[in-house]
Amino acid sequence: MLADLPPLPIHVDPLPYESRLESRPLSQVDLVIIHCTEVPDLAMARSYGEKVLYASSGTGNSGHFYIDRDGSLHQYVALERVANHTRGYNPRSIGIELVNTGRYPDWYAVAHQAMDEPYTAAQIDTLVALLSWLATEHPALRYVTGHEDLDTALVEASDDASRQVRRKRDPGPLFPWDYVLRRVPLQRLPPPSP
């Protein structure tokens, strides 16, 4: 179904358990959630995605699309499948992961909460093209948001049990929200009520 692919090169490489992910009608998908991988490279992100974490379903955590620093676009899960990327929002959303070190390797250390790797121009250009294509192809799609906007849970810091840190901070403070939102036909999802 090449006609359904975005107008940019895409590397389709389904995760080994993709067929075990729940199927869904695309008419229920109204949200895109932006993530960063918080690992050094695409190969490690793929390795994490292939890990089976849920014995009952034989699946793991993953996004639908991954965008590497060079702007290359990779699809690991078909849009008709529910990827496991954001608790409570998976059935209605598409997960897009941007390769970025984030807080790696000390995700929950108090002293390592800065997310100081900028996203590349190539990544953001690919993201804008992908979001624009998705909005055109899937009329129910209306919103975009960050993982950090939806998962605001705190966890015990790995280096100081008396402190807590955010469980998720992606895509983080260096993600160019204004730039992206001016270029795509989606609106930012209002934050959930407390």
Rank of each mutant, 00 (worst) to 15 (best):
N100P: 05
P14E: 07
T120A: 03
P190S: 00
E18L: 07
Y89C: 02
L26E: 01
S72R: 14
D125I: 05
F65L: 12
T86A: 02
D4P: 01
T136H: 14
G102Y: 07
A121W: 00
P176F: 09
S47I: 11
Q123G: 14
I124A: 08
Y179P: 00
A83V: 07
R169V: 01
H74L: 09
P14D: 05
H112P: 03
Q187M: 08
P9C: 09
M44E: 15
S162N: 02
L130N: 15
L21K: 12
Y119H: 14
E156F: 04
P14Y: 04
L8H: 10
P25N: 01
V180H: 05
Q75K: 01
P40S: 12
L73A: 09
F65G: 13
E137P: 03
V155Y: 08
L131M: 11
T152C: 10
S162R: 08
P16S: 13
F65K: 11
S19I: 10
G49H: 11
Q164H: 12
L21T: 09
R46K: 14
R167S: 04
T152H: 11
I96T: 11
E137M: 12
R92E: 09
L131K: 10
V155D: 06
L150T: 02
R81N: 10
P192M: 00
F175P: 08
A83T: 04
G95Q: 10
C36L: 14
L98W: 05
L53I: 05
V110Y: 11
D125S: 12
H112G: 10
S27I: 05
L127T: 10
T86M: 06
Y48E: 14
S56L: 02
G88T: 01
S47N: 14
R103Q: 03
D159H: 12
E22Y: 02
Y89F: 04
R169N: 01
P40T: 12
S162A: 03
G49R: 08
V12P: 05
Y89H: 04
A153N: 13
A55D: 13
E156N: 09
R167I: 03
A153D: 13
R166V: 03
